[in-house]
């Protein structure tokens, strides 16, 4: 009984201290664009992403009238820009791009899942995936229910 409690507290202590160390750890993060493998890496992710969307029945209708070549170029630029690569994003604003499309929160999450799959396929580690996803997530308000 007492032994169980001791082991329990030890485990709790290890968990909490691991979290705290993770929290306080001053780590200098690699530039995200570099972590994604530069423009070459981003291009692979974009190709995978386009293939994921093409197979995704939940959202493919939103892309029915899209120009795939333009989408490809703009995605490459936009991801490079968001990942602190030295790119300029020359496309339309997220609001202009999605106005009138009626993108739901479910559609947005489907896109997030397609991006996760695209990055998995490209062998991007989960921590790097999360760095990019958290930046993409900030765009949600300029995309859904417009």
């Amino acid at each position: 009984m007492g032994h169980g409690r001791f082991v329990y507290r030890l485990a709790m202590l290890s968990l909490v201290s691991t979290l705290l160390i993770g929290c306080m750890g001053i780590r200098k993060e690699q530039n995200l664009f570099d972590a994604l493998g530069g423009q070459e890496g981003v291009n692979v992710i974009v190709e995978n992403f386009i293939m994921q969307i093409a197979r995704d029945e939940r959202i493919i209708d939103h892309f029915a009238v899209s120009n795939v070549e333009r989408f490809r170029m703009m995605m490459r630029e936009h991801l490079c820009f968001l990942a602190d690569g030295l790119c300029e994003y020359t496309g339309d604003s997220m609001i202009d791009t999605h106005a009138g499309m009626g993108v739901t929160e479910g559609d947005f999450n489907a896109i997030v899942e397609d991006m996760m799959a695209a990055m998995n396929q490209a062998g991007v580690p989960i921590g790097t995936q999360n760095r990019l996803l958290s930046r993409l997530a900030k765009l949600r308000g300029e995309i859904i229910y417009l």
Binding site: G22, C23, G25, I126, G127, T128, N130, R131, L133, S134
Partner: peptide, 10 residues
Amino acid sequence: AWIDGLGNRT
């Protein structure tokens, strides 16, 4: 839930 949280984990 912070997507890019502790150790880049959600």
